[in-house]
Amino acid sequence: MALKPPREPLVWALFSAGGMVAALVLPALAGILWIAAPLGLLGPLDHEGLRLLAVHPVVRIGMGLLLPLFFFHWAHRFRHTLHDGLQLYHLSRFIALVTYGVALGLSLGALWILWSLG
């Protein structure tokens, strides 16, 4: 259908998926990193142990999927905060370009870091 907006379903899908996985994963991550680890419930955590965890293929793939969704969730929310919240309608295209551009840049950066971890 020619009249459909071409991008909104895509960015909304990324926003929506990002919000859902953030709600599911972030509490668990916070529980592990901010509570269990400092309390020593996970045993001794050293740099080498964390590096080995990060280079595990499952962790790489998982983070490679999760991080872009987090970034695009932020981008969509921040775009609407600027566009509707601050009513910057005249900057509509610019705001979309910057917010999604930043999300894309952060995603590529995260993927590059995950890829290059040795």
């Binding site: 259908m1 459909k4 379903p9 895509l10 909304w12 899908a13 929506s16």
Partner: peptide, 20 residues
């Protein structure tokens, strides 16, 4: 409805000739 519209959009990518 956003979910419905998004699913329809992805379906239309897979079947570009589809209308409606």
């Amino acid at each position: 409805y956003k979910v419905t519209a998004t699913m329809d959009w992805f379906r239309s990518l897979l079947r570009p000739g589809r209308s409606g």
